[in-house]
Simulated scan of single mutants.
Amino acid sequence: MGVPYDEPAFVISVAAELAGMHPQTLRQYDRLGLVSPGRARGRGRRYSLRDVATLREVQRLSQDEGINLAGIKRILALESHVSRLEQQVELLRSMADPGRRVFTAGPQGEVVAVPRGHRPARVTSTGALVVWRPSPPRT
């Protein structure tokens, strides 16, 4: 059994070797916010396989595509945002059954399904947004 993809497992020297970079480059990327490794008890960096894959992508974008680090940071942020949106779409699709068609925004802005005919719990600090669709007129 291998290391879980998101598990911070590798010290900086191992991660640097896996990514084909110098450890100082990894430190610089951490300071710039390109890759944010986990931390061990003594505050040492611990990189996951996802972090190593991100480091390789940073290197590819920089060397092969000629993109500067600010551009790479923006690309990574946008890819992360798209991934979160895709997860939300899948969540909404899984909730789209006839008994759960009303959605509201939760305290952190996440989408929450509310059973038809129920009001969402009131959040006083941030408010809530309810998506309302009128019923067709009765004949």
Rank of each mutant, 00 (worst) to 15 (best):
P134L: 10
A77N: 10
R31V: 09
Y47S: 15
V114Q: 09
R27L: 06
N68P: 06
S48D: 06
G44A: 05
V102A: 08
Q28I: 07
A77G: 08
L55G: 03
D51T: 04
Q59T: 07
L49T: 14
S125T: 12
R60C: 05
T104E: 13
P4C: 12
L91G: 07
R101E: 11
G33D: 06
V14Q: 13
V123F: 00
A16W: 01
L18S: 10
Q24K: 14
G42Q: 03
R133I: 14
R119A: 15
V82P: 02
I67C: 09
R122W: 05
Q108W: 00
L91H: 02
G38T: 04
A16S: 05
L78M: 12
V131N: 08
R122C: 12
Y29G: 11
A70K: 12
G99W: 02
D30K: 01
R60Y: 00
H22R: 10
E7A: 08
A9I: 07
P134T: 12
V58W: 00
T54L: 01
R41L: 14
I12K: 03
A9C: 11
V131F: 02
G117L: 13
A105H: 07
A105M: 14
G71D: 10
M1D: 09
V82G: 09
Q88K: 07
A16Q: 03
E65V: 11
G71R: 05
V130W: 02
G117V: 13
Q24Y: 00
W132C: 15
A121H: 03
D6A: 11
R119W: 04
E65C: 10
P37R: 03
E17A: 15
R60F: 01
Y47N: 12
Q24W: 02
L61M: 09
A105I: 13
M1C: 13
P4Q: 06
D64K: 02
V130M: 10
V111S: 05
V131L: 11
V52I: 04
W132K: 13
R56V: 09
M1R: 11
M1Y: 05
Y47P: 13
D6R: 06
Q63T: 10
E86W: 00
R122V: 14
L91Y: 01
D6Q: 06
T124G: 15
R119F: 03
R133Q: 14
S80H: 05
L91N: 08
T104R: 09
V52H: 00
V11E: 14
S80R: 08
V102L: 08
L78D: 10
M21I: 15
T139P: 04
G117H: 10
P115G: 10
L18W: 02
